[in-house]
């Protein structure tokens, strides 16, 4: 699913302020809903959209480590400027939706997006 489509479904707005390269935009292949970074870290999150209520810079760093496609903050929580700045530096796309986590998940699921592979798998397993 394209990020534009995600944005439309979630009635979301972009949180970045600089011009990001268009070719840096990635297809969202799956979704991950969590506020716990340990959880996000061990999910095979490559190309995933992270839905979260946390807006600190650890979320961005986590995104960088697991190669997430984008992050959407729920409940209308706008990230702090430092968080946005770090995300821009790392090329991580940020959206903000006023929907709750539950509603955001429900709508994306309805449109066909599925969960990223869960943390039960050992991350030593080759993809």
């Amino acid at each position: 699913m394209r990020l534009e489509e995600v944005q439309r479904i979630l009635e979301a707005r972009p949180a970045w302020t600089v011009r990001l390269p268009r070719n840096g935009e990635r297809e969202v292949v799956s979704c991950l809903a969590t506020d716990l970074m340990s959880d996000a870290l061990t999910t095979t999150g490559e190309g995933s959209l992270l839905l979260t209520g946390l807006t600190n810079s650890q979320v961005i760093r986590t995104a960088g480590i697991v190669d997430l496609a984008a992050i959407c903050f729920v409940r209308g929580k706008s990230p702090q400027p430092e968080t946005v700045e770090l995300a821009e530096k790392m090329g991580v796309r940020l959206l903000v939706t006023d929907l709750s986590m539950f509603e955001a998940c429900g709508r994306l699921y309805e449109k066909g997006l599925r969960a990223a592979v869960g943390d039960e798998g050992d991350c030593r397993t080759r993809e």
Partner: peptide
């Protein structure tokens, strides 16, 4: 509240390590 401390730290480290 910062998204950590859910008791998965060492577990995750072990999972990732040989």
């Amino acid at each position: 509240e910062l998204g950590f401390g859910a008791g998965m730290g060492l577990v995750n480290i072990d999972k990732c390590a040989d």
